[in-house]
Amino acid sequence: MRPLTDTETKTLFEKLANYTGRSLNNLLTDTVSTPGSKTPDRYVFRIQKDRVYYVRESLANLATSVARDSLLSLGTCLGKFTKTGKFRLHITALDVIAPHARYKVWVKQNGEMPFLYGGHVVKAHIGRWSEDAPEHAGAIVLSMNDTPLGFGVTARSTAEARKLDPTGIVLFRQADVGEYLREEDTLFTT
């Protein structure tokens, strides 16, 4: 387990910024008060093997006492670095990015299951969407009662999507909470 290097930090932020926009700063400034210490604890990014974790600093400091190859996971896993140096967000990052989302798509009840089974979002299933979203921008998918279901990339801009037929794809799926079941045996193995 180690902190990220500057290039890794840049790659990670670039990916996160696709979904969050300006409010990504909140991820760095978020603090949590621990009962034992006087100073509030901050969150840091740590990389273990190839996975990046968003973790409380005190916890990260405690984890230094665990051997690298014995440490399986800590904090919230955001995703992993590929061998080519790109960063891939995992569904576990949803809880971190959903509160700071820039563009949102609300899926109707009849579209929830197709999305949770790994399908893209078609226009007929959309209940609401954020206006003024450009093409290929990251968006969070929510159910009509504001429960985050996953995230994806817009296939069309909002203006173009209006003219689309009901079976046309509006959002390409990147991750959905159905993966917790579908990818159960590979999601947390390193």
């Binding site: 902190p3 290097t5 500057d6 930090t9 840049k10 990504l24 760095l28």
Partner: peptide, 12 residues
């Protein structure tokens, strides 16, 4: 390594 807040903010 980038671990301090300032450099992280700069990158961000």
């Amino acid at each position: 390594f980038v671990d301090d807040k300032e450099s992280m903010n700069a990158i961000m």
